[in-house]
Design a protein around this nucleic acid. Structure first.
Lengths: 153, 153
DNA sequence: TTGTATGCAAACATTTTGCAGCGTG
DNA sequence: CACGCTGCAAAATGTTTGCATACAA
């Protein structure tokens, strides 16, 4: 009876992880499926979904719910960080916010919950969409890491 | 050509809103459908979904994505507030956290986004689930507003 | 071998749409 | 009478499962 940790990093799972690491736009499972198929055309959708599950379980990826209507997104950046999502084009950008680190403790004291994780979600208009009068058409599919704001102090 | 604001508060929409206001457990659309039917048995699922959409659009309700696998939840509490979700039983509790109010400004300066809203999501174990060794069975269906922590300072 | 992983297709769950009829202003 | 709203059913999405086969230890 081995515990749930003895998962193998198969070629498919590795491929999914690679794609995820190469993406900075927080792709959904469907996005990832499409991208992986350009490399491993024979992979099945179920395998992608299962692989994502495995990666999340083993701590190699994060599953995000950015609060837009969109399905779960995935992130290979497993450090604690926050996100800001554009209401117009849906683009999601990472942010590292210097939040008071007693936040979890405060919350815990206040609710009795044993806090294990937390994140902040911001919504608004991205610079591009602020510029364009018509808040439509996304800036583009998968732009490289443009606009990732990570100042630490 | 009237704008999208001339929506009527029909009996069905009112019923949905009532149910939502009577619920403190952040029900999903399906939950709400079930509850509304106890009062208005003839209502259709589509109407509930459409009503929720209308209520959200008109600012009478909030659509939440609490990051658990669960579908969107709804909240009649439209004030800005945060949530903590139990990883074991899925219970979601409101919290009003005194976050530095320059947070949006900081974010905006850092990313160029025009921030319109934000919220904090915490995850962990609720008191009940911490107590029970086996992190299973939800505390209960729709407990009244037990455990809502709203200290303001 | 023995058990896990994969691909395919079917099954599912959830939400959206099309449409005819109804009610209200 | 025009228009929005409703209920029903069908359709569209998105994700999970069942199963036979293919691998790997």
């Amino acid at each position: 009876m081995s515990d749930r940790t003895d998962r193998r990093l198969t070629p498919q799972r590795r491929a999914v992880l690679e794609v995820l690491r190469a993406s900075s736009d927080h792709p959904t499972a469907a996005d990832i499926y499409d991208r992986v198929r350009t490399v491993t055309p024979s992979i099945g959708a179920a395998t992608v979904y299962r692989s994502l599950g495995v990666l999340v379980e083993s701590g190699l990826a994060l599953e995000l719910n950015l609060g837009d209507g969109v399905a779960a997104r995935y992130d290979a950046n497993t450090r604690r960080h926050d996100h800001v999502v554009c209401d117009a084009c849906g683009r999601a950008v990472d942010v590292d916010l210097p939040v008071p680190d007693d936040l979890p403790a405060t919350l815990s004291a206040r609710t009795g919950f044993a806090i294990t994780s937390y994140s902040l979600q911001f919504r608004g208009l991205c610079p591009t969409c602020q510029a364009s009068t018509s808040h439509l058409s996304p800036p583009d599919g998968e732009p490289s890491a443009q606009g990732v704001a990570n100042a630490e102090a």
